[in-house]
């Protein structure tokens, strides 16, 4: 199983990262996946209170966040028996419209690929130590105390 996890402190372009990842996978023997499931999450331009959002700040726990992402990914990929897993996550200041997370799963069939992608996304949202702070256009800010609904 091919696994890659990266934290980005500056903006990344998910489709470019994905293209490189797929190119690498294409050159691996016996690693071709007939099914791929992708999720790209972007920062919305509206704060939780309905006001305009200037930016989202993402804090993490260096060391534990990386370990926990790997643990969650290995567990999920093992349960669904998938071929490949790519997780890319932003940290730092993220602007509306920028990608915050990319999860890409390759498997032999659509069922495992889609289920693994969704489960891993939910797992990292709730069990990988990240914290979001909303910066509003009036200069105020607030830490979020949970995730948006599914």
């Amino acid at each position: 199983m091919q696994l890659r996890i990266n934290l980005h402190s500056t903006a990344f372009e998910p489709l470019q990262v994905l293209a490189c990842w797929q190119e690498e996978q294409a050159h691996r023997l016996n690693a071709d996946s007939a099914a791929e499931a992708l999720f790209i999450g972007r920062v919305r331009g509206v704060a939780a209170d309905g006001g305009e959002l200037e930016a989202l700040e993402l804090e993490h726990y260096p060391g534990m966040t990386e370990q926990q992402l790997e643990r969650l990914a290995l567990d999920c990929c093992s349960r669904h028996t998938v071929n490949s897993c790519l997780v890319q996550h932003r940290i730092g200041r993220v602007l509306p419209g920028e990608a915050i997370v990319l999860v890409a799963i390759g498997a032999d069939r659509r069922g495992p690929a889609q289920r693994c992608c969704q489960e891993l996304l939910e797992a990292l949202k709730h069990n990988a130590p990240f914290w979001k702070r909303e910066w509003r256009t009036d200069g105020s800010s607030a830490w979020l105390s949970g995730n948006t609904p599914l």
């Binding site: 534990m64 996550h89 997370v101 949202k125 709730h126 990988a128 990240f130 105390s145």
Partner: peptide, 10 residues
Amino acid sequence: LAFLPPISGG
């Protein structure tokens, strides 16, 4: 030891 407030990743 780390005290972790509610997590909000992804």
